[in-house]
Protein backbone atom coordinates (compact mmCIF):
# COMPACT_ATOMS: atom_id res chain seq x y z
CA UNK A 1 0.00 0.00 0.00
CA UNK A 2 2.80 2.37 0.78
CA UNK A 3 4.25 2.53 -2.77
CA UNK A 4 0.83 3.25 -4.29
CA UNK A 5 0.55 6.27 -2.10
CA UNK A 6 3.93 7.63 -3.00
CA UNK A 7 3.53 7.17 -6.75
CA UNK A 8 2.04 10.61 -7.12
CA UNK A 9 5.46 12.06 -6.56
CA UNK A 10 7.77 11.36 -9.50
CA UNK A 11 10.97 11.28 -7.52
CA UNK A 12 9.54 8.99 -4.93
CA UNK A 13 8.30 6.68 -7.66
CA UNK A 14 11.77 6.61 -9.18
CA UNK A 15 13.36 5.80 -5.92
CA UNK A 16 10.71 3.25 -5.17
CA UNK A 17 11.11 1.63 -8.58
CA UNK A 18 14.83 1.60 -8.28
CA UNK A 19 14.72 0.29 -4.78
CA UNK A 20 12.01 -2.26 -5.47
CA UNK A 21 13.14 -5.54 -6.84
CA UNK A 22 9.71 -6.32 -8.35
CA UNK A 23 9.14 -4.82 -11.81
CA UNK A 24 5.61 -6.13 -11.80
CA UNK A 25 4.48 -3.58 -9.29
CA UNK A 26 5.06 -0.69 -11.58
CA UNK A 27 3.33 -2.43 -14.44
CA UNK A 28 0.44 -3.11 -12.18
CA UNK A 29 0.05 0.54 -11.36
CA UNK A 30 0.03 1.36 -15.02
CA UNK A 31 2.94 3.77 -14.93
CA UNK A 32 5.50 3.03 -17.61
CA UNK A 33 7.57 6.18 -17.52
CA UNK A 34 9.71 5.52 -14.51
CA UNK A 35 10.60 2.03 -15.70
CA UNK A 36 11.39 3.14 -19.27
CA UNK A 37 13.36 6.22 -18.30
CA UNK A 38 15.22 4.39 -15.62
CA UNK A 39 16.77 1.67 -17.75
CA UNK A 40 18.99 3.54 -20.23
CA UNK A 41 20.20 6.15 -17.81
CA UNK A 42 23.81 6.04 -18.87
CA UNK A 43 23.21 5.22 -22.51
CA UNK A 44 20.98 8.11 -23.60
CA UNK A 45 23.43 10.95 -23.13
CA UNK A 46 26.12 9.05 -24.94
CA UNK A 47 23.75 8.32 -27.82
CA UNK A 48 22.80 11.97 -28.09
CA UNK A 49 26.38 13.03 -28.20
CA UNK A 50 27.18 10.50 -30.87
CA UNK A 51 23.97 10.91 -32.86
CA UNK A 52 24.07 14.66 -33.33
CA UNK A 53 26.73 16.02 -35.66
CA UNK A 54 29.54 17.70 -33.83
CA UNK A 55 30.73 19.67 -36.84
CA UNK A 56 28.21 22.47 -36.48
CA UNK A 57 28.86 22.92 -32.79
CA UNK A 58 32.58 23.04 -33.27
CA UNK A 59 32.20 25.63 -36.00
CA UNK A 60 29.99 27.81 -33.83
CA UNK A 61 32.51 27.72 -31.07
CA UNK A 62 35.28 28.67 -33.42
CA UNK A 63 33.41 31.59 -35.05
CA UNK A 64 34.24 34.72 -33.11
CA UNK A 65 31.64 37.39 -32.56
CA UNK A 66 33.07 40.82 -33.20
CA UNK A 67 31.84 43.86 -31.38
CA UNK A 68 31.00 47.09 -33.19
CA UNK A 69 34.04 48.78 -31.76
CA UNK A 70 36.36 46.06 -33.04
CA UNK A 71 34.91 46.27 -36.52
CA UNK A 72 35.12 50.02 -36.58
CA UNK A 73 31.53 50.48 -37.76
CA UNK A 74 30.34 54.08 -37.49
CA UNK A 75 27.78 54.59 -34.77
CA UNK A 76 24.17 55.19 -35.65
CA UNK A 77 22.76 58.66 -35.31
CA UNK A 78 20.79 58.62 -32.13
CA UNK A 79 19.13 61.42 -30.26
CA UNK A 80 20.64 61.92 -26.86
CA UNK A 81 19.53 64.78 -24.64
CA UNK A 82 22.21 67.31 -23.79
CA UNK A 83 22.09 66.67 -20.09
CA UNK A 84 22.41 62.93 -20.48
CA UNK A 85 25.63 62.81 -22.50
CA UNK A 86 28.60 62.13 -20.34
CA UNK A 87 32.11 63.15 -21.30
CA UNK A 88 34.37 60.34 -22.45
CA UNK A 89 37.63 59.53 -20.83
CA UNK A 90 36.47 60.41 -17.39
CA UNK A 91 36.48 58.01 -14.52
CA UNK A 92 33.29 56.29 -13.60
CA UNK A 93 31.57 57.41 -10.46
CA UNK A 94 30.37 60.66 -9.04
CA UNK A 95 32.42 63.42 -7.51
CA UNK A 96 30.38 64.92 -4.74
CA UNK A 97 30.54 68.55 -3.74
CA UNK A 98 30.07 68.80 -0.03
CA UNK A 99 32.89 70.89 1.34
CA UNK A 100 32.30 74.58 1.80
CA UNK A 101 35.23 75.77 -0.31
CA UNK A 102 34.24 74.03 -3.52
CA UNK A 103 30.65 75.09 -3.01
CA UNK A 104 31.62 78.70 -2.56
CA UNK A 105 33.82 78.62 -5.67
CA UNK A 106 30.95 77.24 -7.74
CA UNK A 107 28.66 79.81 -6.18
CA UNK A 108 30.91 82.76 -6.96
CA UNK A 109 31.36 81.52 -10.53
CA UNK A 110 27.64 81.21 -11.06
CA UNK A 111 26.92 84.55 -9.41
CA UNK A 112 29.43 86.32 -11.61
CA UNK A 113 27.97 84.66 -14.69
CA UNK A 114 24.42 85.59 -13.72
CA UNK A 115 25.38 89.17 -12.90
CA UNK A 116 26.99 89.45 -16.30
CA UNK A 117 23.92 88.05 -17.98
CA UNK A 118 21.59 90.40 -16.13
CA UNK A 119 23.82 93.37 -16.83
CA UNK A 120 23.94 92.55 -20.52
CA UNK A 121 20.18 92.11 -20.51
CA UNK A 122 19.72 95.49 -18.86
CA UNK A 123 22.17 97.12 -21.25
CA UNK A 124 20.38 95.61 -24.20
CA UNK A 125 17.04 96.74 -22.82
CA UNK A 126 18.35 100.26 -22.34
CA UNK A 127 19.80 100.36 -25.82
CA UNK A 128 16.55 99.11 -27.26
CA UNK A 129 14.71 101.71 -25.23
CA UNK A 130 16.98 104.46 -26.57
CA UNK A 131 16.44 103.26 -30.12
CA UNK A 132 12.72 103.15 -29.56
CA UNK A 133 12.70 106.63 -28.10
CA UNK A 134 14.76 107.96 -30.99
CA UNK A 135 12.37 106.34 -33.45
CA UNK A 136 9.42 107.75 -31.58
CA UNK A 137 10.96 111.24 -31.59
CA UNK A 138 11.63 110.91 -35.31
CA UNK A 139 8.08 109.80 -35.95
CA UNK A 140 6.76 112.70 -33.86
CA UNK A 141 8.92 115.13 -35.76
CA UNK A 142 7.71 113.76 -39.06
CA UNK A 143 4.14 114.03 -37.86
CA UNK A 144 4.69 117.60 -36.80
CA UNK A 145 6.28 118.46 -40.11
CA UNK A 146 3.35 116.92 -41.91
CA UNK A 147 0.94 118.86 -39.78
CA UNK A 148 2.84 122.07 -40.34
CA UNK A 149 2.81 121.47 -44.06
CA UNK A 150 -0.88 120.77 -43.97
CA UNK A 151 -1.51 123.94 -42.00
CA UNK A 152 0.57 125.88 -44.46
CA UNK A 153 -1.35 124.56 -47.38
CA UNK A 154 -4.56 125.24 -45.52
CA UNK A 155 -3.49 128.83 -44.94
CA UNK A 156 -2.54 129.16 -48.55
CA UNK A 157 -5.91 127.86 -49.60
CA UNK A 158 -7.61 130.26 -47.25
CA UNK A 159 -5.59 133.15 -48.58
CA UNK A 160 -6.39 132.17 -52.12
CA UNK A 161 -10.04 132.00 -51.22
CA UNK A 162 -9.82 135.38 -49.61
CA UNK A 163 -8.16 136.75 -52.67
CA UNK A 164 -10.82 135.36 -54.88
CA UNK A 165 -13.54 136.74 -52.61
CA UNK A 166 -11.66 140.04 -52.48
CA UNK A 167 -11.61 140.30 -56.24
CA UNK A 168 -15.36 139.72 -56.27
CA UNK A 169 -15.75 142.56 -53.83
CA UNK A 170 -13.69 144.78 -56.06
CA UNK A 171 -15.96 143.99 -58.90
CA UNK A 172 -18.89 145.00 -56.77
CA UNK A 173 -17.11 148.14 -55.82
CA UNK A 174 -16.51 148.85 -59.44
CA UNK A 175 -20.13 148.29 -60.18
CA UNK A 176 -21.06 150.56 -57.34
CA UNK A 177 -18.64 153.11 -58.58
CA UNK A 178 -20.12 152.80 -61.99
CA UNK A 179 -23.53 153.27 -60.50
CA UNK A 180 -22.37 156.29 -58.63
CA UNK A 181 -20.85 157.64 -61.74
CA UNK A 182 -24.02 157.03 -63.64
CA UNK A 183 -26.02 158.60 -60.89
CA UNK A 184 -23.64 161.41 -60.87
CA UNK A 185 -24.02 161.70 -64.61
CA UNK A 186 -27.78 161.63 -64.31
CA UNK A 187 -27.78 164.01 -61.45
CA UNK A 188 -25.07 165.97 -63.10
CA UNK A 189 -27.56 167.87 -65.29
CA UNK A 190 -29.61 168.64 -62.32
CA UNK A 191 -26.58 169.52 -60.47
CA UNK A 192 -25.66 171.70 -63.35
CA UNK A 193 -29.09 173.28 -63.23
CA UNK A 194 -28.65 173.79 -59.62
CA UNK A 195 -25.33 175.33 -60.22
CA UNK A 196 -26.74 177.54 -62.94
CA UNK A 197 -29.41 178.70 -60.67
CA UNK A 198 -26.95 179.42 -58.02
CA UNK A 199 -24.35 181.05 -60.34
CA UNK A 200 -25.97 184.21 -61.62
CA UNK A 201 -22.84 185.45 -63.25
CA UNK A 202 -23.05 182.92 -65.97
CA UNK A 203 -26.29 184.22 -67.33
CA UNK A 204 -27.00 183.85 -70.95
CA UNK A 205 -28.93 186.49 -72.69
CA UNK A 206 -30.30 186.14 -76.16
CA UNK A 207 -29.79 189.01 -78.49
CA UNK A 208 -32.98 190.50 -79.74
Amino acid sequence: MAPTRTIKNKHSSKSSSSSSSNPKRSSKDGIKKPSSSHKPKAKIPSKEQKGKPNFGQDKKKKSRVYTEKELGIPELNMITPVGVTKPKGKKKGKIFVDDKESMSTILSLILAEKEGQIESKLLKARQMEEIREARKAEADKKEQDRKAKLDETKELMRKKRKKTTGSNNNKKDDEEEDKIVKDAVVAGTKAGKKTAKGNKKKSVSFAE
Partner: peptide, 13 residues
Protein backbone atom coordinates in the same frame (compact mmCIF):
# COMPACT_ATOMS: atom_id res chain seq x y z
CA UNK B 1 23.60 61.71 -1.13
CA UNK B 2 25.41 64.99 -1.67
CA UNK B 3 25.10 66.68 -5.05
CA UNK B 4 27.71 66.23 -7.75
CA UNK B 5 29.53 69.12 -9.38
CA UNK B 6 27.16 69.31 -12.33
CA UNK B 7 24.05 68.96 -10.22
CA UNK B 8 25.21 71.67 -7.85
CA UNK B 9 25.86 73.99 -10.79
CA UNK B 10 22.39 73.48 -12.25
CA UNK B 11 20.70 73.94 -8.87
CA UNK B 12 22.61 77.09 -7.99
CA UNK B 13 22.19 78.45 -11.51
Amino acid sequence: RALTDEEMKTVLD
